[in-house]
Design a protein around this nucleic acid. Structure first.
Lengths: 158, 158
DNA sequence: TTTAAATCCTACTAAAACCATCGGGTATAA
DNA sequence: TTATACCCGATGGTTTTAGTAGGATTTAAA
């Protein structure tokens, strides 16, 4: 099982869309700037998210990505599955043939753990994350930083 | 976060000791044979388990490893921690400085998940695994296979 | 006293996964 | 027409994994 930056980036980026996407599509360049994720890497992740129909894309200027469903109906587990293949703690991808085509001594333990994790992440929607106090605080900080950066740029232009 | 064969091997090997270690120390060669784990790799894992005082070793012929505490008081979470360093889903090892020294948008989500996993694995003792029906079934199968292998060897000697 | 069984220890390596970067496409609004 | 943005494939550096190799040390048993 793995849960690395790949899955974390994907969830963070999707949450970014949920937070800021109410007025039209969000470009990956914006997400990249706010969340400190490399643009090229985001492109790869969103290719997978698009294939799994979690986002839809609008090309051309003013384009970007939108959630393809309301944020209440998109769950963290789906996002991780989309980019990370699986949240599975077994060594045999659940097929019970871990040792010589038969189950290993601890197969069911890892199977239970996988269920636990999947259940936990399946209960958390993007909308529920948007409502969280800590998420709102971080979001406010990010917007403030974006405004500062903008004003620095404008000052430099003068 | 990672949960790979390293952690799985360690738990399986410890469970092997819990199952068969009641009559003196178990050699890693025996564990290797029963659980299909390479001997040298087991040696590396048990070096860590020994450092964390989960097992104690007896050198020389007839030697091997024993659990250093009763199996009722050894929990899966400890074993994984010992060989895998951590079961942590955050990107910052819990230090909350995931983005530019501040918390990232999804930090608390991963922190909650880590707590969930750790709590789950902290509740499972080696003794409770030994009592499980599925573990007993697999164990019986492994012993049967070992007897077959032994009889093949004896036949070949004749 | 010798031998062989076992732990102990360090270094090395092939393969995989991760986390990108790069360079070019293509669609499309302005 | 042009700049913006998505789209796509190839590549590469770094880290981790899973295991190998080769020996040194301890010690029970022959």
């Amino acid at each position: 099982m793995r849960l690395t930056t790949k899955g974390r980036y994907a969830v963070t980026a999707m949450l970014d869309l949920a937070l800021y996407g109410d007025r039209g599509p969000i470009s990956l360049a914006d997400v990249s700037g706010r969340q400190d994720i490399s643009l090229s890497y985001l492109e790869q992740l969103f290719a997978k998210l698009r294939r799994k129909d979690l986002v839809c894309s609008i090309r051309g200027p003013g384009g970007g990505y939108r959630l393809s469903r309301p944020s209440e109906t998109i769950f963290v587990a789906e996002i991780i599955d989309a980019v990370d293949e699986r949240v599975d703690a077994t060594g045999c991808a659940g097929s019970s043939d871990c040792q010589d085509g038969q189950t290993c001594l601890t197969h069911n333990l890892w199977s239970d753990l996988s269920d636990q994790i999947h259940h936990f992440l399946s209960d958390i929607s993007l909308a529920s994350l948007v409502e969280r106090r800590d998420v709102q605080n971080v979001s406010a900080r990010q917007l403030q930083r974006a405004r500062n950066t903008q004003s620095i740029i404008l000052t430099a232009v003068d």
